[in-house]
Amino acid sequence: MRRQDTISGRRRRKAVWLALMTVLIGMYLLFPLVWMALSSFQDERVLQSRPPRVLLTPDIFTLDHYNFLLTGRMPETGIMVQAMYTMSGTYVLPSVVNSLVIAVTVTLGNLILGIPAAHAFARVRFRGNRTLFMALFATRLLPALSIVVPMFIIVSRIGLLDTKLALMVIYLAITLPFTLWLLRGYFAHVPRELEEAARVDGAGRFTVLWRIVLPVAKPGLIASAVFAFMLSYGEFPFALILTQSLASRTMPALMAGIGYYGSSRGMVAAASVLSFAPPLVLAALFRRQLIDGLTQRFE
């Protein structure tokens, strides 16, 4: 009897402790994001006052920042606020579109090139398979800043500065190794017998890949697509150096130059919320596949 009491007591203490840790971890991970979201709806005068207001009460709530970013319309009140909406603010939406176009193209490229390659790496035994795979993966270790200068020279020499094409090709190359690594893991977990049975029936390698492997490895396809999208949507150093005009800037390159001191904090916060929307929506839609991919559950 007594022993049971101590066990249930220990359980309760553990439950309390776990709840406490959950709250702490949740706050640590989420507070900066919540703070950004709240700021984006706050009146500029409130944002630039002490102490900061955390609760979003009706008297400080405003849609001015979003209104400006989405329509370019200045708020009617407050000359001070108008002056703080910087010109680059009107390029936020175009830059998000630029990044979306690039990221979607790169994602498709990853699947088109990555699927057959990963399957061959997973299934075909040939000399140097592992070495080649590791060599490809090793390119991920190279810091962007190590090749950004020659890249700038090469890209400007062939006249591709300020174009999406240059960034697409570069992003394809820097995302592919991870895609290959992830997909190879998923493909290796597809039961070999399934593939062999189909091949005995006379199906070619590509048919087997298309008809048998891909349907089974669908979570892996989704995960690697989302990862490739996120990486190319948020890439910064190459975008910074290879896009010079405001109109050609991708989201990260534009946002990096936005909101220096004296510009509207609310505008920057709202721009951040808008720019975060695409990867956020993807993460929410495909959370299962993402978490499985990150925890390497390749089933």
Binding site: L29, L30, P32, L33, W35, M36, S39, M230, Y233, G234, F236, M251, P252, A253, M255, A256, I258, G259, R265, V268, A269, S272, S275, F276, P279, L280, L282, A283, R287, L290, I291, L294
Partner: peptide, 18 residues
Amino acid sequence: LLPYALPGTLSALIWRWM
């Protein structure tokens, strides 16, 4: 998943603001 999905430049802006 959220900090993971957040593009790096945006996290930099958030922290600068904090």
